[in-house]
Design a protein around this nucleic acid. Structure first.
Lengths: 196, 196
DNA sequence: GTCTATATTACGATAGAC
DNA sequence: GTCTATCGTAATATAGAC
């Protein structure tokens, strides 16, 4: 903030525009022409800031992956009973997903056509695997229902959490606690009324 | 089966090839060249069977939508207590999703860039809306937890069910009952052990 | 029904002026 | 840093032979 903010793009500000368009039209459905229209500069000006379309994708999914992996390093994810660590990671994953919504959205839609996309898929699988191990440990402790296959439960839990990107839009001034609570409640407590 | 099956394509058999490629590379990431390689015929031969790429998409998502809407007409979906109708629809949706896996997969990934895609999105929303109404009725009966927002629960339920297309691959000779059971158990009963 | 050849447009990326 | 102009390629789709 040393000088007045100029109205020009940086790779980061350009990225935020690009990611939005990618999410609306899909990465493959977005041309440099689409990006230039959305950014209000010409196609060739975009190449002054980034090497090309794929660099924008790489920056975006990197940001999403960094946010997700950071959760696994937090104290709540490495200490305590496995079942509580799982719930913590679930809650924090929801929060990261909401805070970095457009970036995580793009990450979750990657198909694997380019090298960048395949790298993103691989890192995602690694994250999933680490959470799956946590669930396994919670199941071994007897804290998860014994009648549900643990790999299946992991998939369904992820599916539910990840599906947030398809509809959730953050409200200004509203915390994400309620959303995270609801997800954890539904995943671990179930929908049905507990009747005795 | 009146005559011996010829080795030539019909719109339907071509569709099954195309949908597979669409799901691997994404619709926008798939060129007619990709399709021709996968089908083993030339690009121009494809145009003999269908008007173009978008017709393949339209046929595919129509098939998926028909399967899903048919569930809402079944007796189990229109009779009985709302909470049981919801569980029935959930179970049957899982089954349709598995039986028509590639078609539903494609449907769930549609973005809205073309007229066909926007039509598919609209029909999907209508299906979602009908199930949401069912959940609402079940909540009004007191059969769903009162502490969960019903619209949110609907979204999460759908998210969990729809996420199946991202990983489930049918096993030959295996029924889908187990999968549907697991989904219904997790959604309505929750993951956690019921401790008194 | 399938092919080769091609028309036409759209795309990603670059050159070079300002 | 942004622009106009353009290159080379790949895309959808068609024409017309067999």
């Amino acid at each position: 903030m040393t000088t007045a903010r100029r109205d020009t793009y940086t790779p980061e500000t350009l990225l935020s525009v690009a990611v939005q368009v990618f999410n609306e039209r899909g990465y493959d459905g977005t041309s440099m022409e689409h990006l230039s229209k959305a950014a209000g500069i010409s196609k060739s000006s975009i190449y002054h800031h980034v090497a090309g379309k794929e660099e924008l994708l790489r920056r975006a999914v990197s940001r999403a992956l960094d946010g997700l992996f950071a959760v696994l390093e937090e104290p709540g994810a490495v200490r305590g009973r496995p079942v509580e660590r799982v719930e913590y990671v679930t809650r924090r994953t929801v929060e990261v997903l909401v805070c970095e919504l457009p970036y995580v959205t793009l990450l979750l839609r990657v198909r694997g056509n380019t090298r960048t996309e395949r790298w993103a898929l691989e890192r995602r699988r690694e994250f999933d695997h680490q959470v799956a191990d946590l669930l396994k440990a919670a199941a071994d402790d007897g804290d998860l229902r014994a009648d549900v296959d643990i790999r299946l439960a992991t998939r369904l839990l992820f599916g539910m959490v990840n599906s947030l990107v398809e509809w959730y839009r953050p409200h200004p001034g509203t915390g994400h606690d309620q959303l995270a609570d609801a997800v954890v409640h539904m995943a671990f407590g179930g929908l049905r009324t507990v009747r005795d």
